[in-house]
Simulated assay, not measured.
Amino acid sequence: MNEMTILAFALVAFIGIATPGPTVLLALTNGSRHGVRRAGYGMIGAVLSDFVLIGAVALGLGALLAASEFWFTVVKWLGAAYLAFLGIALLRSRGTLDIASQEPHGAGEGTRRSIFLKSFLVAVTNPKGYLFFSAFLPQFIDPTLPQAKQYIALALVFASIDFIVMFAYAVLGSQAVRFLKRSGAIWLDRVCGGALLALAGSLAFYRRATF
């Protein structure tokens, strides 16, 4: 795998990651609700999910989901239900202002574990991620070279870009909420919650044949 291959992969990966998806939206809302530092736990969860997805694809799970209607449907509905749950929670929010300072360190939805798990589970329960990597990664893999090292290299590049993009969105969220009144903060939650519900709906109607 040469440098040009890595650069081409990084460019395509950046375009895909920067387009707002579930983990990016969570980084934005976590930044506004809990601050960039606490949002970092969600970023770690999302990055770990990148390694899980790419590792699963390297081991053939993506091909299994592409071939099995049953397992594809199971993972799809789990992912759609979880996205809908998060979206509804944001729609019911009463605003994000001062939550980071008011919330006890170890309580409620703002705990490190909760923030981490939300971002991790959103990614690993989305079958589109497995199918995407199954179609995307082999284009940058040289079959004449050891594949494990190549998958590891691509995973590191993808995870690094993912973290940088999520960090930027978390900073955006944390800065935006400083200039919003409470009603504006509520609307920020409403927009992100609606976007997550829309993503849940698109996932619910997603079919393997359209990939």
Rank of each mutant, 00 (worst) to 15 (best):
A100P: 02
A100N: 04
V12K: 09
F163M: 02
L7V: 05
A67Q: 10
D50C: 07
I54R: 08
E3T: 09
T5L: 10
H105G: 10
D98G: 01
S160D: 09
D50S: 07
L91R: 07
L121G: 15
R94K: 07
F72S: 01
G110D: 05
S160Q: 06
A58N: 04
Q175H: 05
V124S: 14
R94E: 11
F51K: 03
I141G: 01
P138D: 14
A66D: 13
D50N: 08
F120A: 05
V57I: 00
S49F: 10
F163V: 00
V122Y: 13
L131Q: 08
I6F: 14
P138V: 02
V171S: 00
D142L: 08
S93E: 07
L154I: 09
V177E: 12
N30R: 03
V157W: 09
S49R: 05
F205Q: 14
K128A: 04
G21W: 15
G194N: 13
A58Q: 12
F132M: 11
L97A: 07
M4N: 15
R37W: 06
R37N: 02
R208L: 09
L11I: 11
L25C: 07
A39I: 00
G40K: 03
A155W: 11
L196K: 11
L180N: 02
A200F: 08
S68P: 04
M43F: 13
I54F: 06
R92F: 12
L61K: 06
R190E: 08
L121F: 15
F14C: 13
A195L: 09
R92S: 10
G108A: 02
P127D: 11
D162L: 01
I141S: 01
A148C: 01
V24N: 14
A123Q: 15
I15V: 11
L145M: 10
V165M: 05
A185P: 00
T210M: 15
P22D: 14
V36Q: 01
R37E: 05
G62N: 14
Y130H: 02
Y130M: 00
S202T: 13
V165T: 04
Y130T: 00
